[in-house]
């Protein structure tokens, strides 16, 4: 089955991105396809390669990047939400790309299931 994932929060204020990551990983392990993970609201902060969590903390930016690398997951950051928050191409972590909100709607249309993680 094809899943579309929407992440509405960044890595440091809410559990949403952690839950979304673990859900995405579990879905891939079960052999499902992740059509797209779309990052909206403060969720765009998951793409910021300049973020430096403390050494004993999990690094969600790197975890998402690794998932994209390993499973070719399409990680899309909303352009309008990103510009507001200063997230631009030159600070994007590997595997992320910036595109329009239409990519979220397209995910809803194409995926068999669309699920939101947020606050």
């Amino acid at each position: 089955m094809k899943f579309g994932i929407l992440v509405n929060e960044g890595p440091f204020q809410h559990q949403a991105s952690d839950s979304a990551y673990l859900f995405t990983k579990a879905a891939l392990e079960k052999g499902h396809e992740i059509y797209r993970v779309f990052f909206y609201y403060d969720g765009v902060n998951n793409a910021n390669k300049l973020s430096e969590p403390q050494a004993d903390d999990r690094d969600l930016v790197k975890l998402w990047s690794a998932l994209a690398e390993e499973h070719k997951v399409d990680l899309v950051v909303c352009v309008a939400a990103a510009l507001r928050r200063g997230i631009k191409d030159d600070i994007l972590a590997p595997g992320f790309r910036i595109s329009g909100l239409g990519q979220l709607i397209e995910s809803g249309i194409v995926a068999d299931r669309q699920i939101t993680f947020g606050d």
Binding site: Y41, L101, G102, L104, I105, G108, I109
Partner: peptide, 14 residues
């Protein structure tokens, strides 16, 4: 930002 999402979905004729 929800309102922005609504407007985009409309453009996709959903």
């Amino acid at each position: 930002e929800m309102l922005e999402k609504v407007l985009i979905a409309a453009a996709f004729e959903q």
